[in-house]
Amino acid sequence: MADLPPASDPTRIAEVKAWLASQFDAVGKDVPEFEYTPRAVAYLHNLATLSQSKTHASSIVANDFRIKASEYRSQAARIREILENAGLAQESLQANVVSSAQVLANVANLLNIRDTELSSFLVAMGDISLRKTGVEEKRAKVQKEFKVLLDFTRKAIARLTYLKRTLAQLEDDVAPCEAQMENWNTNLRVIASKEQQYLQQHANYKAMLNRRGYTPDISHGVLVQMAEHRKELEKTTKPIMDTLRSYQDLPPDKALAALAIEDKKRQYAAAEKYLEDVLQSALATSE
């Protein structure tokens, strides 16, 4: 669209008014009242220019058609005069001849040829034959594509049916799955609560072990090994303790008793040293 003219352009407004008056006068009506804004004037001016150019072009084509029609009428009159002079006027021809000529003319018009020469008919028939062959080839191609599309449509319908059945099955499984998910959520909440509880208990036990002086060096394996050594030491010290108890039944002899006590003390100290060495060896091995 052209640029909008200024609102005070009298030339364009006059052209628009004149064009509107001519158009509405042609149908016997008055031009309706409206405001000639710059946008309306620009639109109507472009429309008037386009209409006038098309009207001029159509008048040229119409004049050309009138000239050709006049020429065709003149040629038809000349041909009719020639036929009448040769005794071949339509009125003097037999009905079957007129009918055959009319059929020949109709066929010529159908084949879109300018004359009724045999060569023109042959060329037109050859052209129709070629077009027929092309149409048949296109028809075969379209049928092949149609078969492909039909097969694709059948497969699509089968898949759609399968998807609908699957959707229906999934919709039926929604309620049980929701119940199972709710059960899982409940179990997860319980497990989370237990986890917090166990973490708190672990922290409490760890603090308790720290207060009791527990170190990672005192492991279960070390304690088991120390218990085994304790049992061995108990087996070793049991005869000594039995001997000491037997001395209680002897008459008191201060010198012998002192010697015996000193001997047992040495044995007891040796056993304690052995236990300490075993414990130190076990701790070193665990590290």
Rank of each mutant, 00 (worst) to 15 (best):
residue 144 K to W: 07
residue 154 R to T: 00
residue 216 P to K: 02
residue 242 D to Y: 06
residue 48 A to H: 02
residue 97 V to L: 08
residue 42 A to W: 05
residue 202 H to Y: 06
residue 233 L to K: 07
residue 255 A to H: 01
residue 210 N to I: 11
residue 170 L to R: 13
residue 239 P to W: 06
residue 27 V to Q: 07
residue 245 R to E: 11
residue 155 K to P: 09
residue 206 K to A: 04
residue 91 E to R: 10
residue 183 N to Y: 03
residue 93 L to D: 08
residue 37 T to C: 14
residue 251 P to E: 00
residue 148 V to A: 00
residue 98 V to M: 13
residue 134 G to A: 10
residue 89 A to N: 15
residue 63 N to V: 12
residue 65 F to H: 06
residue 39 R to E: 15
residue 23 Q to A: 04
residue 157 I to E: 15
residue 51 S to A: 02
residue 64 D to M: 09
residue 13 I to C: 06
residue 134 G to L: 04
residue 149 L to K: 03
residue 20 L to H: 08
residue 45 H to R: 11
residue 125 M to L: 15
residue 68 K to V: 10
residue 40 A to W: 04
residue 215 T to A: 02
residue 189 R to M: 11
residue 247 Y to L: 05
residue 3 D to P: 04
residue 280 Q to K: 12
residue 114 R to H: 04
residue 156 A to S: 07
residue 58 S to C: 02
residue 184 W to N: 00
residue 204 N to C: 02
residue 95 A to E: 09
residue 156 A to F: 06
residue 70 S to I: 14
residue 162 Y to M: 11
residue 215 T to K: 01
residue 27 V to H: 04
residue 269 A to P: 01
residue 162 Y to H: 09
residue 209 L to F: 12
residue 54 K to T: 05
residue 67 I to W: 05
residue 94 Q to C: 11
residue 120 S to K: 14
residue 255 A to N: 03
residue 250 L to Q: 10
residue 189 R to Y: 10
residue 38 P to R: 08
residue 216 P to H: 00
residue 95 A to I: 05
residue 120 S to R: 14
residue 130 L to V: 15
residue 142 V to T: 03
residue 192 A to P: 00
residue 30 D to C: 13
residue 148 V to I: 00
residue 116 T to F: 12
residue 100 S to W: 07
residue 243 T to H: 05
residue 196 Q to P: 01
residue 231 K to F: 13
residue 193 S to T: 05
residue 222 V to A: 04
residue 32 P to I: 11
residue 128 I to Y: 15
residue 164 K to A: 11
residue 100 S to C: 12
residue 272 E to N: 12
residue 270 A to M: 07
residue 160 L to Y: 09
residue 233 L to D: 03
residue 166 T to V: 03
residue 106 N to C: 13
residue 17 K to G: 02
residue 163 L to N: 10
residue 121 F to C: 15
residue 82 I to L: 13
residue 152 F to T: 03
residue 126 G to I: 08
residue 206 K to W: 04
residue 113 I to G: 12
residue 280 Q to T: 14
residue 18 A to K: 01
residue 246 S to M: 05
residue 14 A to G: 00
residue 47 L to V: 12
residue 192 A to E: 04
residue 81 E to G: 15
residue 131 R to H: 13
residue 12 R to T: 07
residue 60 I to K: 00
residue 240 I to H: 05
residue 127 D to A: 14
residue 136 E to Q: 10
residue 178 E to W: 07
residue 49 T to E: 00
residue 278 V to R: 02
residue 159 R to G: 09
residue 252 P to Q: 01
residue 84 E to L: 10
residue 70 S to E: 15
residue 189 R to S: 14
residue 158 A to T: 02
residue 10 P to M: 01
residue 76 A to T: 02
residue 26 A to Y: 14
residue 102 Q to G: 01
residue 89 A to Y: 08
residue 268 Y to C: 07
residue 196 Q to L: 01
residue 51 S to Q: 05
residue 167 L to H: 04
residue 100 S to Y: 11
